[in-house]
């Protein structure tokens, strides 16, 4: 396997769905072989569409996509042989056993005989499904099903593994277990992993490089540290005991602004935020300034920049606000409560 050629090279992908919804608007990524690459963005940003194109499921309106050295548009069959896909939806057959699912998957790639059975058993063992291998998949827990999905994707030893939101819907414990498994996979046999996620923490923890996707395009790309480093410095958040009036708020901001170690001071209600090159060192000075202005302080926190801050900077909105899809269930749940309140 040549390490020089990228495992995935997509450029200028444009995809419009019937009805005029633009899913991709010039999407492009390059994934070096043997690395874990994270596509990070809210639901609807275009992550899944990108994966569908790269895995030969969907075709773009225009653009190019090379996967494992093959053109996904002209030679989809060659790409299919080289990739493993773990889609958002499970896809395992619920009325077949875990082992039967694996055997069928292997057979579709032309694997036969004793090697096929050995590979299935090896994966069942590895994903802690050995005891459940003979049970119908519909009896599996969510975490077990997800592990089987990953095993299915690995059955034919692919060069590139696509993991489309591998931990969405899992409970925290199962999620941590899945993270460990993915980290372990990443070190193996030069496997390249393309991971999509809308969990900032997940991308931060698993991916060597991250592309932040918003509205069908990559808006920022780099290692997690590079992306966070571009924000220069720590965030200092101060919660005041009382909400300052408008004049006081402006006075506070001005007073802090004169102090060279902090910048980008904002006051929003009781919440005062600033950025500092060295957060901990700036705290005493900030407190001294506030004390002099007569503003009583409730709490002070210093935070290293998070990917959320990065997202805010490049996409121009908070991650949680943009992520309308996941917020959907909460929002829907809130609707009847609101209307009930209105009726009262």
């Amino acid at each position: 396997m040549t390490t020089a050629a990228p495992a995935v090279e997509a450029d200028g992908l444009i995809k419009t769905y019937p009805g005029g919804v633009t899913a991709l608007d010039g999407m492009g990524i390059t994934v070096a072989a043997g690395t874990v690459f994270g596509l990070l963005g809210p639901n609807g940003a275009g992550k899944s569409t990108t994966v569908k194109i790269l895995t030969t499921l969907a075709r773009p309106d225009s653009g190019t996509a090379l996967v494992a050295g093959h053109d996904a548009l002209r030679h989809p069959d060659r790409v299919r042989r080289a990739i493993g896909v773990v889609a958002q939806k499970s896809g395992a057959d619920p009325v077949a056993t875990g082992r039967e699912n694996l055997l069928l998957q292997g057979r579709l790639y032309g694997r036969r005989g004793a090697e096929l059975g050995r590979r299935a058993d090896e994966l069942l063992e590895r994903f802690d499904l050995a005891a459940a291998g003979g049970r119908l998949v519909r009896t599996y827990s969510g975490g077990m099903q997800r592990r089987l999905d990953v095993a299915l994707g690995l059955m034919h030893r692919p060069q590139v593994l696509f993991l489309d939101e591998p931990t969405t819907g899992l409970d925290p414990e199962a999620r941590t277990a899945m993270w460990e498994e993915i980290s372990r996979l990443a070190g193996e046999e030069g496997l390249t992993i393309l991971l999509t996620t809308h969990y900032l923490e997940e991308a931060d923890r698993l991916a060597e490089r991250i592309a932040i996707v918003d509205r069908g395009r990559v808006v920022a790309e780099g290692t997690p540290d590079e992306l966070k480093g571009e924000l220069r410095g720590d965030a200092v958040h101060v919660e005041l005991r009382d909400t300052p009036d408008e004049v006081d708020a402006r006075l506070l901001a001005t007073a802090l602004g004169e102090f060279a170690a902090v910048r980008e001071v904002t006051v929003d209600g009781r919440r005062l935020s600033a950025r500092a090159d060295d957060g901990p060192a700036a705290v005493p000075h900030v407190l001294a300034v506030l004390d002099r202005q007569g503003a009583a302080v409730a709490t002070v926190t210093v935070a290293r920049p998070s990917l959320d801050d990065v997202y805010l900077r490049y996409a121009g909105r908070r991650f949680a606000d943009a992520d309308t899809g996941t917020g959907g269930s909460a929002a829907k749940a809130a609707v009847p409560a609101t209307s009930a309140g209105g009726a009262r």
């Binding site: 895995t55 030969t56 499921l57 069959d77 299919r80 042989r81 990739i83 896909v85 889609a87 958002q88 939806k89 499970s90 896809g91 395992a92 057959d93 619920p94 998957q105 579709l108 790639y109 032309g110 299915l152």
Partner: peptide, 14 residues
């Protein structure tokens, strides 16, 4: 289709 099984098969060489 809803379960994702068809998509899984369509990304294999079947």
């Amino acid at each position: 289709i809803e379960r994702g099984t068809l998509n899984r098969f369509l990304t294999t060489p079947v």
